[in-house]
């Protein structure tokens, strides 16, 4: 009985979450535009069309936005995995002067709201002459405190003997890092990857202040500008743009999530 009540509650919550997605999906295929309302949940009349997508992709320049988002997300995520991993390994295993201070300093960065860093970041990017480039969107994000700490904690749990054995066998630091530490940290790396993909794909404020031209916009910016530039809300086109923006991230999430679960259930860390 209790289980059934729980199921009803969970089902209702799932429904509330899914309805907007459903509306977005359905509306994006409609051959008419109009304000969104209750009728959008089960629209009657109108014809099914892919025209909205084609128009948005070509005329709305969403193709370009999509490419920009892809480039920025790919490089930020790749850089995060490598640099967060390196920093985490150094902080977890290397002995050096001031390590404790460094860890503290990085921790403090967690407590600074991103908003506070907006202006300094803008000034630095502008000063480097990177304003309105892909690098402007990528470089400030290549390492993330969250990733460093998550990976450091995970690496601390790996048996030290593995590294000692590798060192005795003649492996260099680089080899140990790339052939032992990183492969064994896969479950934690998957979490970092998901986080990084979600954050960089959905980023809005930073791309807004660090780019100016239409050809540098990412998808979230594209949607926002599309909405404001087309007076009289064309909800069908807007929803088509939103589907383009949200579908890849939903798919990526599903793929990575499966990996996480695989990584966790394997649990073969102890030799």
């Amino acid at each position: 009985m209790r289980k059934q009540i729980l199921h009803i509650i969970l089902f209702s919550l799932a429904l509330i979450t899914l309805v907007p997605l459903w509306v977005m999906f359905v509306t994006s295929f409609l051959d008419r535009s109009g304000p969104l309302g209750l009728g959008s949940v089960f629209p009657i009349g109108g014809e099914f069309t892919l025209g909205n997508f084609i128009e948005v992709w070509i005329e709305g320049n969403f193709g370009r936005y999509f490419l920009n988002s892809l480039i920025v997300t790919f490089f930020i995520t790749a850089a995060n995995l490598i640099f967060d991993g390196m920093a985490a390994y150094a902080l977890a295993r290397r002995e050096f002067k001031g390590r404790g201070w460094l860890i503290g300093l990085i921790l403090i960065k967690l407590m600074i709201p991103a908003t506070v860093l907006m202006v300094p970041t803008f000034i630095v990017v502008k000063g480097l002459g990177l304003y309105d480039t892909h690098l402007a969107l990528i470089l400030p994000m290549v390492a993330e405190t969250f990733g460093i700490f998550l990976l450091r904690q995970y690496m601390l749990s790996l048996p030290v003997e593995l590294e000692e054995a590798a060192r005795l066998e003649g492996a260099s630091d680089w080899r140990i890092f790339f052939t032992i530490i990183m492969p064994l940290s896969k479950p934690a790396l998957a979490v970092v990857a998901i986080h990084s993909v979600l954050v960089s794909w959905n980023a809005y404020i930073y791309p807004l202040i660090l780019t100016a031209s239409d050809s540098m916009r990412t998808l979230p910016l594209g949607i926002a500008f599309f909405r404001s530039s087309h007076s009289g809300v064309d909800s069908a086109h807007l929803m088509a743009g939103s589907v383009i923006a949200s579908l890849p991230v939903i798919l990526a999430f599903l793929v990575f999530q499966r990996q996480i679960i695989a990584g966790l259930t394997k649990g073969a860390v102890k030799g």
Binding site: P159, E161, L162, E164, A165, A166, L168, I180, P183, L184, K186, A268, V269, K270, G271
Partner: peptide, 11 residues
Amino acid sequence: MVFQNYALYPH
């Protein structure tokens, strides 16, 4: 060296 917990690379 042979370690107490074997230190085999699990992956």
